[in-house]
Design a protein around this nucleic acid. Sequence first.
RNA 1: GGGGGUGCGCCGGAGUUGGAGAGCCGGGCCAGACUGUAAAUCUGGUGUCUCUGACUGAAUAGGUUCGAGUCCUAUCACCCCCA
Length: 375
Amino acid sequence: MQFSILATDFNSNARAGIMEFSHGYVETPVFMPVGTIGAIKGVSHETLAEVIGAQIILANAYHLYLRPGMDVVQSAGGIHRFSTWNKPILTDSGGYQVYSLSPIRKISEEGVHFRSHIDGSPHFFSPENVIEIQMKIGADIIMAFDECTPWPCTYDYAETSLHRTHRWLDRCHAHFENTQPYYGDAQVLAPIVQGSTFAELRKISAEYVTASGMPLNAIGGLSVGEPVEEMYAMTSLVCDILSKEKPRYLMGVGTPANILESISLGIDMFDCVLPTRNARHGLLYTWEGVINIKNEKWRNDHNALDEQGCSWSRKYSRAYLRHLVQSNEILGAMIASVHNLCFYQDLLRVARRHIIEGTFRIWKDKTVPALEQRL
RNA sequence: GGGGGUGCGCCGGAGUUGGAGAGCCGGGCCAGACUGUAAAUCUGGUGUCUCUGACUGAAUAGGUUCGAGUCCUAUCACCCCCA
């Protein structure tokens, strides 16, 4: 993987760059739509590439491992061939599921025993087999196996978890170095900074991750319920420590405003379920603010969803989308998802342009309040 | 025209052997939540008011009773059967 920084903002830590993978280029800062099971819910790959213009997407090792299973993905020749998405893909390790499926798992030094959320069957994830699974999936970027700590959590818990995550990182690294890619395409392993909202722990973790010398670094364990100020504080602190020459990935973030603020702190990569999940629940993001399309006030609004949006957003009306979402029609979820992903894509594209022009900070300060309006 | 049956919330069900209803379930509707997706999910509201509490309410009008959504009478509406 190659990463080049093309421009840096004058009044913030924002930077614009480009990453090169065996499956293509990715311009940063970038938003990666979340396709947990190898599909962005409700959005075809054609639409994703041609209408939305996504450059890289996420998939999840935990979910693909449980279903359809590694045998299927491997016999297809990896996730790119299996899904027909031939641009870069990042797989999450399942560390987040250790957090979100906490009632049905048990963490030990060796790894995590858990039950399938699908059929209750018992399974075991270790740093080694999670790397193995992700190499078999064949994503361009694979994530270290970590524990995403819940918020709030005690200092002691965060510290214990943090050191275990670091030991797991070393095991991930070792297994990664000793394994050849299954499909001949280069893969990179990304370590994850943890430490909850404790500055001291975040610093230790950022230094540990930096010392591991990997080509792309991630920040995890944020946007799990903590106040946004704490999220920004931790992100800022960690960005100052992580290598400036390497891409920084803030996992699971966030709202449009979160993304712009985090870019200004030095983040290059984002992923979040909000644009797709909220789309299915009727929330649309626009430059003027957030629209709840289910609200009665749109009932007879035959204007376009968003005049500044993509071809779909300019074509379909608010009243029509309200009707579709109201009726629980699949097409409603599809249109809303495409709209939101297009908006996120646009947001990042405009942000990048301002970074290159050196006007990011000013533009960001002016834009964020508008993004947070409710329409 | 005769006989029988049924009437309560926006809708559909359930239920009430004369004994505490603003009240069960589902739907609709109105809002809210959602951040490395166990999520096309979840939560709340949905008679009126001067709203931490009151008031009105079981088709309508009477009646019996300590007490009526429940029993009686009349009227109205709808459904079924006969002519």
